Simulated scan of single mutants.
Amino acid sequence: MTPVERRASFSLAGIFGLRMLGMFIILPVFALFAAHLPGGQDKARVGLALGAYGLTQAFFQIPLGWLSDRVGRKPVIMGGLLVFALGSFMAASAQTLTGITVGRAIQGTGAIAAALIALTADLTKEQNRTTAMAMIGVTIGLTFTLSMVISPILYPLIGVPGLFMLTGVLALSAIAVTKWVVPNPPAQLEVDRVSFGSVLTHIELLRLNFGIFVLHASLMATFIVVPTALVQAGLAQPEHWKLYLPVMIGSFILMVPPVAFAHGKWRKQVFLGALMVVLVAHGMMHFALGNIWGTALALLVFFVGFNVLEASLPSLVTLVAPPNAKGTATGVYSTIQFLGTFVGATGAGVLTQHFGASIVPLFTAGLTFLWLVVAWPMQVNKPTNGG
């Protein structure tokens, strides 16, 4: 990597991490916090409050990705961060579950993931892009780890409102990083525009988009049930970080070898292998709920596969997308990603409310098996410009 590419990769990964913190940091504690609010015993409403962020993210990713292809990446990113901060402050000041849901929805309208991924592709050479995207994926994983560890520690001190306030302040700081640290992308040459329909019908993009939907639906669904299950198994909420920390450290160590091989001729094999690991983890979680050690082991297996897939998917999208439609393609990808967070959170909430927590891992296992079937014929070893 050149110095400019390293600067771009580290700064954009940092912005992505700060952005994802807004989704992750409340996961370990929100269901417990919401139980003390009016209506908080209704798991479907709790799932909606968590998932509202993903729903509005899904709605705005495509138009803002398209807009970034035309007015530039940085204006879209800075505007989205400002809106995200506003939603964070609104959620922090809310006194009801409905108010928090509205704040989460406004957070999600600052949908910048597509523009961030496209800007990363703009600022890196093709041979270095997988590394840059992997840095973003690892940063997302580190952000998740940090959230799992510090959220249970901060919750007794500042509560969920304080966590929302923190994410708003971090979003404002990310605007400064975007403005003064991230390199400016090269001027876009005038090229023939690729039709929106061709992006929507690109077979390999469709496979990848379905994959990110399932991956994030599974993540959100898992954390609708795991925090409560751990408390019921005898692990008090302030002690949850003692489980999450070794799980996440272990998963990062174990993900290094497959990520190192996740390029060239081994790309597909590593990808499908990680997908099968996630499928096994969901099966383990079905039997492990209610057992602290079993849940920890299932989470460890899950996050090994999750981290590899999270690092691989955005790189593959920019690899196969038409070069002059990266913003649009990543907009569709990010839309489907956050739609997955909405479906996972709300679906798990409804399932738990009516059938109990143990049904949720079966739901995520079914989705993951379907993804494996869809992904099996994938052809992503070489860049393509068509559908």
Rank of each mutant, 00 (worst) to 15 (best):
G54W: 06
L55N: 03
G103M: 13
G108I: 12
K74F: 05
P63Y: 01
A94H: 02
Q95H: 11
G80N: 03
L37A: 12
L67P: 11
G99A: 11
G79D: 07
T109H: 02
H36M: 06
T101S: 13
H36I: 01
G80M: 12
L55I: 03
G47W: 03
L37I: 13
L86I: 15
R45T: 05
T56G: 05
F59K: 00
P75W: 07
Q57T: 09
A52F: 05
A58T: 05
L86N: 00
A52N: 04
L50D: 02
L48S: 01
G65Y: 01
L82A: 15
L81D: 06
F60I: 11
G65W: 01
A52L: 15
P38R: 09
R104C: 06
L82K: 06
T101A: 13
Q107F: 02
A111T: 09
T96Q: 01
T98M: 13
A52M: 15
K74T: 11
A111R: 10
G54E: 02
L82I: 14
T101K: 07
L97M: 10
T109L: 14
V102N: 01
Q61C: 12
G99W: 08
A52W: 04
Q61I: 11
L97N: 10
F89H: 06
L50G: 02
G108P: 09
R70L: 10
G99Q: 07
Q41L: 14
F84W: 07
K43Y: 04
K43W: 02
L97Q: 08
G40V: 13
M78C: 14
A58S: 15
R73A: 13
I106E: 04
M78Y: 05
R104V: 11
R104E: 06
W66L: 14
K74E: 10
L50H: 00
S88I: 12
G72D: 02
I77V: 15
A111S: 14
G103K: 09
G40L: 13
F89P: 11
P75D: 01
Q107V: 08
Y53S: 08
I77T: 08
A52G: 01
G80I: 14
D69W: 07
A94L: 11
A92E: 00
L67W: 05
L67S: 06
L64T: 07
I100G: 03
A91S: 15
H36D: 15
R104G: 00
A91R: 12
L86H: 03
G99C: 10
G110R: 07
Y53I: 02
G110T: 08
G47S: 10
T98C: 00
L82C: 12
R45N: 09
L86T: 13
P63V: 11
L55F: 13
G99T: 03
R45L: 15
